[in-house]
Amino acid sequence: MLESIPDVGQILTLTIIAIALGMDALSIGIGLGMKRPSFEKMVLFCMLVAFFHIVMPLCGIYIGEYLSVYIKEIASLVGGGMLCFLGGNMVIHSFRNSEEVFVRSGTIMGLTMMSMSVSLDSLSAGLSMGLFSADRFLAVILFGLSGGVLTILGLLIGKSMGSWMGRYGEILGGVILFVLGVTFLWD
């Protein structure tokens, strides 16, 4: 029975990755919150982000587990490289003006597309987790929980503060993913 419980190191690593990926959702939540959406739209967006932060990494994990059979010898390099790429991409993206993302945030389809796009990073991270044989249930629960919580936090911050914090959150998340990727490459 104790064999099925993930070790503390895996729980900590997955939690850090989940929070780092959720920083993107925090950033978009801040931007959307500045537009002062209705309570219903805030709840819908939060639920959509949490949903896609569960579905996308789960798909990635299954793809990664499938691919790990064929690239077992270089799985650490590929997974670590993907985390470095993902982190670097988040940092670079944070310096771009992302106002165009919020053009259709008033519609349900727009909210769905935004939540899906913010969760694409989770697909790549899930692929890395599949290559490393991470506990998929723990990973998707942590990813979904952090995506949802950081989205609602971002929406609330955006309603009250402004946009300056969103960029820093995304930079921090990207740096964390990059550092984790480097540690996987060095193992």
Rank of each mutant, 00 (worst) to 15 (best):
M1T: 10
L2D: 13
L2K: 12
I5P: 15
I5T: 11
I5L: 14
V8R: 13
I11T: 08
I11F: 15
L12V: 15
T13L: 15
T13G: 03
L14Y: 00
L14W: 07
A20D: 05
L21W: 00
L21K: 01
D24R: 02
I30Y: 07
L32D: 06
L32T: 11
G33D: 11
M34E: 10
K35M: 13
R36P: 13
E40C: 05
M42A: 12
M42D: 08
V43H: 07
M47W: 11
L48M: 15
V49H: 10
F51L: 15
H53N: 14
G60T: 05
E65F: 08
E65L: 14
S68G: 02
V78A: 10
G79S: 15
G79F: 03
F85E: 02
F85N: 04
G87F: 01
G87N: 00
N89K: 10
N89T: 09
H93R: 09
H93L: 09
F95L: 12
R96P: 01
R96W: 06
N97T: 10
S98K: 11
S98N: 14
E99H: 11
R104N: 15
S105F: 14
T107W: 12
T107V: 00
M109W: 14
G110K: 03
T112D: 00
M114T: 13
M116D: 06
D121M: 01
D121R: 03
D121Y: 07
S122L: 02
L123W: 00
L123K: 04
S124H: 04
L127T: 14
L127N: 04
L127Q: 07
S128D: 05
G130A: 05
L131F: 00
S133I: 07
A134E: 11
A134P: 02
R136M: 09
R136N: 09
R136S: 15
L138S: 08
L138Q: 10
L138R: 11
I141N: 10
T151I: 00
L153E: 04
G154R: 05
G154H: 08
L155R: 03
L155I: 15
I157Y: 05
G158L: 00
G158R: 02
S160A: 03
S160E: 09
G162Q: 08
S163F: 01
W164R: 13
M165W: 06
R167S: 06
E170Q: 15
L172G: 00
G173I: 05
G174S: 10
V175K: 07
L180V: 14
L180M: 15
L180Y: 14
V182G: 03
V182T: 08
T183F: 03
F184V: 07
L185G: 00
D187V: 07
